[in-house]
Write a protein that binds this DNA or RNA. Structure first.
Length: 259
DNA sequence: ATGGTAGCGGTGCTA
């Protein structure tokens, strides 16, 4: 089973690019971030016509996540537990059953800039809630996948110019430590299980010709529970998508599971 | 230190 994540940066601005990528890459499941749309305005019909079931957790103007699947989506939940007052749409979960049953989480982790400040505080608080949810999911001892835009550069090797990100919320020691706390509680960074080379990026800023200079960072990740990691056969990044007309600033990151 | 680009929504915020 092929499972992908794609921060599309606006579903209505990107519907053509999304349909083209879905048609070529044909993921069984895809989690989307930054749909920047309320549920009612999500372009369901065009995506459904390619054979996908659709569940959204939208929000006006900002954030918003969705999950697409060729197989039925069951037990869908919306929102990261731990703060009923959190209005931001950044988390969705669903269960998909092929030859195996998988719990799949799609997430859009807060950016956190500028740091320090209230946005950075929100990022760290959100990551504490994520850690609790990850621990509960891992404790099920079932195959679980958490994929999305993590807004974390895990190590300097995940940036073309690490010095440019040293004081950024995506790379600050507190952010990296919070990410490691999740990872080290029993999760596996799927792309890094497959590809240890530096220079593997998933995001290039629209500004300063970052793509043309390959000034990228790796911030879109799949974290796999031990039972999911045991099923992993391949992982990769659809880098070429960034070179197309009117691209997102992120590209898809996918995993292949024997499931 | 600044400004560079993009989406949403119709101004300034977010990234």
């Amino acid at each position: 089973m092929r499972i992908a994540t794609f921060n599309i940066n606006g579903i209505r601005a990107r519907i053509g690019a999304l349909l083209q990528w879905l048609d070529e890459s044909r993921p069984d499941v895809a989690v989307l971030q930054e749909i920047k749309s309320v549920d009612d305005a999500f372009p369901r019909d065009e995506i459904a016509s390619l054979g996908y079931n659709i569940e959204t957790h939208g929000q006006k103007s900002f954030n918003g996540v969705a999950i697409l699947s060729r197989l039925p989506l069951e037990d869908v939940t919306r929102g990261l537990p731990g703060d009923d007052g959190d209005e931001q749409a950044r988390w969705i979960e669903a269960t998909v059953t092929g030859r195996r049953t998988l719990r799949i989480c799609g997430l859009y982790l807060p950016n956190g800039n500028p740091a320090p400040g209230p946005k950075f505080d929100y990022k760290l608080a959100w990551m504490a809630r994520l850690r609790a949810r990850a621990e509960a999911l891992r404790a099920t001892e079932e195959p679980v996948l958490m994929g999305g835009d993590w807004n974390i550069i895990p190590q300097d090797e995940d940036a073309a110019r690490p010095e440019a990100w040293a004081n950024d919320a995506l790379a600050l020691p507190q952010s990296r430590a919070a990410f490691r706390r999740v990872l080290h509680s029993g999760w596996h960074d799927a792309v890094r299980l497959i590809d240890r080379r530096p220079g593997v990026y998933s995001y290039w800023d629209y500004q300063r010709a970052a793509w043309d200079r390959n000034d990228g960072i790796r911030i879109d990740h799949w974290l796999l529970s031990p039972q999911a990691a045991d099923l992993l056969t391949d992982a990769g990044i659809d880098r070429d998508v960034r070179a197309r007309e009117k691209p997102s600033d992120h590209v898809p990151v996918w995993v292949e599971l024997d499931a």
